[in-house]
């Protein structure tokens, strides 16, 4: 079973395909929007991409561990509803800080519930998190039945306008997460994550705490969804109990484009970050090229199908030749 060079390269660098696609999307976007690289334009793009980037990272962690989390969008909605109602347009910074802390706890709690069902009660991840997504969506609507509320403009301004050394805030957030990830990858927990996603039986036989690792991935995903929810709230400055809905499928798309196989045990978070940026750029291109919005859905779908099928197609072509 000799592997092809492409297989070996993508094994070492799972984000290779995403990087290629990024170059294409970026070039296209640059042609349509020549000032793309100016700090203010970059910032106005990145602050929009950041919520999806955060959610996609959590999604990727679950997928590496062999699961999937359909409830992330609803967790974002819960957090948004919570912050918009509890902080309010005239809230003071200390309440805001407290509520954001609470939002993270809520996100992890929602993730823990998912993890409990999937890891310890051994329920099927897609069905389980699909079901819990309705619980969380219902909770968000309960907290905030009608769009409204918000956060003080001082907070939104900080999120929207902060540029340090020509680079937008989002870059520093991403850098920090990549740093934490690089650290995790070098701990035993990082190895366990990949072992559990790769072949849970073998990991168990070797003595890896399989259930605890699976549980932890859902908690991490809940935490990242809560962070995504905070970013979303600071971006929009207002509350809407359905704001997170589109993020679920986009996060899976981003993770898959970023080289995280649905079968688990491979990939990383650099790829999904790039994947989320690509999805954002495509949205830009479509709005700048002033084509119908259904193109966006169409192109998104075409890319995910391509990303899923590409390894198989490459193998098929090689076998025909060989």
């Amino acid at each position: 079973m000799k592997q092809s060079r492409w297989q070996q390269a993508t094994y070492r660098h799972p984000y290779l395909f995403a990087l290629l696609l990024l170059v294409v999307a970026f070039t296209a976007n640059l042609l349509l929007q020549p000032n793309l690289l100016e700090p203010t334009t970059l910032n106005s793009n990145m602050r929009v991409f950041l919520p999806l980037i955060l959610v996609a990272i959590g999604q990727a962690i679950v997928m590496i561990g062999g699961g999937i989390d359909i409830s992330v969008g609803s967790i974002v909605s819960v957090v948004n509803a919570l912050l918009a109602t509890q902080i309010g347009l005239s809230g003071d910074p200390s309440t805001a800080g407290m509520m954001m802390g609470a939002a993270l706890v809520v996100g992890m709690g929602a993730g823990a519930l998912n993890g409990l069902f999937v890891a310890y009660l051994r329920l099927q991840p897609i069905i389980t998190t699909f079901a819990t997504s309705f619980i969380y969506a219902g909770l968000a609507l309960f907290i905030l039945p009608n769009p409204g509320g918000g956060v003080p403009s001082r907070l939104t301004a900080f999120y929207r306008e902060t540029i340090i050394l020509w680079l937008p805030l989002a870059f520093y957030v991403i850098a920090l997460i990549l740093l934490v990830w690089a650290f995790i990858r070098r701990t035993r927990y990082g190895r366990y994550l990949y072992a559990v996603g790769g072949k849970a039986d073998a990991a168990y036989e070797t003595g890896v705490p399989v259930q605890a690792v699976q549980f932890s991935t859902y908690v991490a995903s809940g935490l990242m969804a809560a962070l995504g929810g905070i970013a979303m709230t600071l971006l929009t400055g207002s509350g809407n109990a359905q704001v997170g809905d589109p993020l679920t499928l986009s996060s899976i798309t981003a993770a898959v484009i970023g080289g995280t196989p649905l079968s688990g045990g491979a990939g990383g978070i650099a790829g999904p970050i790039i994947g989320a940026v690509i999805l954002g750029l495509i949205r830009n291109i479509i709005s700048f090229a002033s084509v119908a919005t259904w193109w966006q859905t169409f192109v998104n779908a075409a890319i995910i199908v391509l990303a899923l099928a590409l390894p198989g197609i490459i193998n098929l072509v090689r076998r025909r030749k060989g």
Partner: peptide, 16 residues
């Protein structure tokens, strides 16, 4: 076999 196919030889031998 009790090896994880996606992991390297070293990662598999020293897992845990």
């Amino acid at each position: 076999l009790s090896l994880v196919p996606q992991m390297t030889v070293a990662e598999n031998i020293w897992l845990t």
